[in-house]
């Protein structure tokens, strides 16, 4: 059951998108988000959607996965849509009691919903096609200018790597402990809220104990291999920019330029 979690799940592949430099990919995703919020015209948003379809197509990641990553944010999307619909001033379309729905409100709600969906799908594409290690590596490199301000960039990146590395391990461990307690007749599925909360104790305590044990062992293992922070550390996998990285950046710039152009030139259809 816990296996179904997809946060940060990586699907190995060989497409161009998989091979893009992870730094470039992070920057592209940021640019993509900017592009989404720049778009002021449905055609601009359409461009964003097309971009997404193209990205998923090239990477051969199943479109079904978009739905899976969207599932947890559906309430947020609905919530913002409703808020936008109810609290925007403008031309009223519908009036029930003290609630007024305006034309601008509906427009804003649709825009926001599409933007959030694209945003989630776009960032998911990043995590689907980039291994967690490559991601944290890229974050470290991108943030490295902050080192001059004494921000512990390497330590932060290392912590993120370790945290990501241990997510599947801890999920597996939780599964195992749950199975073991179920075998002793523990019941997680029925009962009132308090009873259910109490039923978690037999899972949480062993889980914490083992997490601490693992942390201890890991620290020891790292020290045994003379780990002493980022100073003077080299990498096994060097990041190199290749021609397709530049192509991708160029393409992204074109898309952003297109969006701005559409904002100014295209007729307002909606």
């Amino acid at each position: 059951m816990l296996r179904d979690i997809t946060i940060g799940q990586y699907f190995p592949g060989k497409s161009v998108i998989h091979r893009l430099d992870s730094r470039v990919k992070i920057l592209l995703v940021m640019a993509y988000i900017i592009m989404l919020f720049l778009a002021d015209n449905p055609l601009g948003l359409l461009l964003g959607i097309l971009f997404l379809i193209l990205g998923y197509g090239i990477s051969r990641i199943s479109y079904k996965l978009i739905l899976r990553s969207l599932k947890p944010v559906v309430p947020i999307i609905l919530f913002t849509a409703v808020l936008n619909m109810l609290f925007m001033d403008g031309r009223p379309v519908l009036r029930v009691w003290i609630i007024t729905v305006t034309y601008e409100g509906i427009r804003m709600a649709v825009f926001m919903a599409v933007r959030i969906i694209c945003l989630i799908a776009g960032t998911s594409l990043l995590t689907y096609t980039t291994s967690p290690i490559a991601l944290t590596d890229a974050i470290e490199r991108l943030l490295s200018p902050l080192k001059t301000l004494h921000v512990p960039v390497h330590e932060l990146a290392m912590m993120m790597t370790i945290a990501l590395r241990f997510i599947p391990t801890l999920i597996e461990e939780t599964d195992k402990i749950m199975a073991a307690q179920k075998a002793r007749g523990a019941d997680f599925e029925t009962g009132r809220l308090m009873q259910r909360a109490k039923a978690l104790v037999p899972i949480l305590i062993p889980l914490f104990v083992s997490a601490f044990r693992r942390a201890d062992e890991l620290a020891l293992a790292m020290e045994c291999r003379c780990y002493h922070g980022g100073e003077g550390r080299t990498r096994m996998k060097q990041l190199h920019l290749r021609y397709y990285d530049f192509v991708a950046c160029g393409f992204m710039l074109c898309c952003i330029a297109g969006t701005i152009l559409i904002n100014y030139c295209a007729p307002v259809v909606f």
Binding site: E173, K176, I177, A179, A180, Q181, A183, R184, G185, A186, D187, V201, P202, I205, P206, V209, S210
Partner: peptide, 26 residues
């Protein structure tokens, strides 16, 4: 009754007695 691999990692109670009693109490 199923005893998993490394079953000691499922212990959680304050005392040995209470831990053994978990199953029969359930």
């Amino acid at each position: 009754g199923l005893v998993f691999q490394y079953p000691e990692y499922q212990l959680f109670e304050e005392t040995v007695y209470k831990d053994i009693a978990f199953g029969p109490t359930n």
